[in-house]
Design a protein around this nucleic acid. Structure first.
Lengths: 192, 192
DNA sequence: CAAGCTGATGAACGCTCGTTAGTTTGACCG
DNA sequence: CGGTCAAACTAACGAGCGTTCATCAGCTTG
């Protein structure tokens, strides 16, 4: 191991923390370097560019969201259980991956093409998948909402907002928050 | 009226649009100037500084939120009606003042003291006031939630998120969205 | 029509940014 | 112990930023 012991993961993690706190444009590479007790140019031994850091963060996170969704969704479950599981895992991720969520939801617009387009496509895929669950619940008479699209937006953004206030030192664990929020989701769609 | 017809309101409005789209740090004064078909230094005839623009936006918006709240809250109303009205006006504001909401929720951390502290105090005031309404509803047996704080966070952030997807050209008017979202809020707290 | 004022402008400032190049350091291996 | 190679360093770059200032244009007023 050399003097500073830097590596790509450590750099990405430090960037994640600072991007989440001050935003992508509000964070200088010199601040990331200072965090790691290293001069700025040393970072380039472990990353492509500043923009590349953002890209990797967004990519990894949006892929994780879709993975989560398809992993917990059982096609044989009734809509209420599907919605509960999909919401719980989405809420849980926003409590356990706060920094990633903050960066993705704040700085995605700083991505260049084609990364921005790909990210939007993934977001839309998750959005439509959740909307489909709600629509099935409405058809089955289990849910009661005027607009599945509106309810889907509301539930997704509800979970996203967890990243803005959750704390590991708080009164509730990530699991408890996820359980309560999935309960909120079922109430929003008017599940009996 | 002189050549370009600039004035403080026009500059603030252009800044608002660009801050909302690219963020405070992501927006250059030259871009604001370009929007107004003017050279950058001309802006200084109508503003103090870039930071001052952000400050005025945040100030005006957070004051408006508290104004709205106290204007619609009737102490004699039952908790359910109080929550409905408070949520409706908050949701409505986020549909009709999208740009302001986006800036406040993204770039507040770029404010310097004491502005940042003052803004946080106002936010907390609104948060606590809404939480109190929910707590009263729980005490009265009208609402059923484990944690009024969690429900209050959820409802507020739910409304905030409207700014992220609402469009004047969309299928729903601001009033319709506000009505549906205040319905979501009542469902979240388990109002009968 | 001349004087004066408001505001738009070109030029320039000091600074910070992301990034590159060349050099030096230090850990590892035969 | 000497050679090798990865990686951290110093120095410097070009560009863009927010901001200032002296100048200039054009409208208003007497």
């Amino acid at each position: 191991m050399t003097r500073a012991g830097l590596n790509p993961d450590v750099v990405l993690d430090a960037a994640l923390t600072l991007f989440a706190r001050r935003g992508y444009h509000g964070t200088a590479l010199s601040e990331i370097a200072e965090t790691l007790q290293v001069r700025t140019p040393s970072l380039y031994n472990h990353m492509g560019s500043k923009h590349d850091l953002l890209l990797r963060i967004v990519d990894r996170t949006t892929a994780g969201v879709l993975d989560d969704f398809h992993r917990v969704l059982d096609p044989d479950d009734p809509p209420a259980e599907q919605l509960r599981r999909a919401t719980r895992v989405y809420a849980h991720r926003h409590a356990t991956h706060r920094r990633e969520a903050l960066v993705v939801n704040r700085d995605t617009s700083s991505l260049s093409e084609p990364a921005f387009g790909e990210m939007q496509a993934r977001r839309r895929e998750h959005e439509h998948a959740l909307r489909a669950v709600i629509a099935r619940g409405v058809e089955a008479g289990d849910f009661h909402v005027e607009s599945p699209a509106l309810a889907s937006f509301a539930i997704r953004e509800l979970c996203v907002s967890i990243a803005r206030w959750f704390s590991d030192d708080g009164a509730l664990t990530a699991e408890q928050v996820a359980d309560q929020y999935s309960g909120f989701a079922l109430r929003i769609v008017g599940a009996s």
